[in-house]
Simulated assay, not measured.
Amino acid sequence: MLETVYAACLGLELNRAGIAFGRQVATPVTCKGIPIGLGFRADVVGEDAVIVEVKAVRRMRRRS
């Protein structure tokens, strides 16, 4: 998938910039402080503070 390639390229750029990050980071999910028992894997987590979900589309359309 293109998203996997884009996430790998993002990882290279984050490395070059000296930014700590993880890929496919398991993240617990809670609702109002209560664990809901579902897992979530973030594509990229930077500096343990920013979650990035990488998405790819074939074409961008303008909104009218």
Rank of each mutant, 00 (worst) to 15 (best):
M1S: 15
T4Y: 13
Y6S: 06
A8V: 12
C9A: 13
C9S: 12
L10A: 12
L10F: 12
G11D: 02
G11W: 02
L12A: 14
L12P: 01
L14W: 01
R16D: 14
R16A: 15
G18H: 09
I19C: 11
A20N: 10
G22A: 06
G22S: 05
Q24P: 02
Q24E: 14
V25Q: 03
V25E: 03
V25I: 08
T27I: 14
V29L: 05
V29K: 05
T30E: 07
C31H: 13
K32Y: 08
K32T: 09
K32N: 13
K32Q: 12
K32E: 07
G33C: 06
G33R: 01
G33L: 05
I34K: 13
I34N: 05
P35C: 06
P35M: 02
I36P: 00
I36N: 01
L38M: 12
F40A: 01
F40Y: 15
R41A: 00
D43L: 00
V45H: 05
E47R: 13
E47P: 06
D48G: 08
D48E: 10
D48M: 04
V50L: 13
V50T: 07
I51M: 07
I51C: 10
V52A: 06
V52I: 15
E53C: 06
V54N: 01
A56F: 04
V57K: 07
V57F: 10
R59D: 01
R61G: 02
R63E: 10
R63P: 01
R63H: 09
R63K: 11
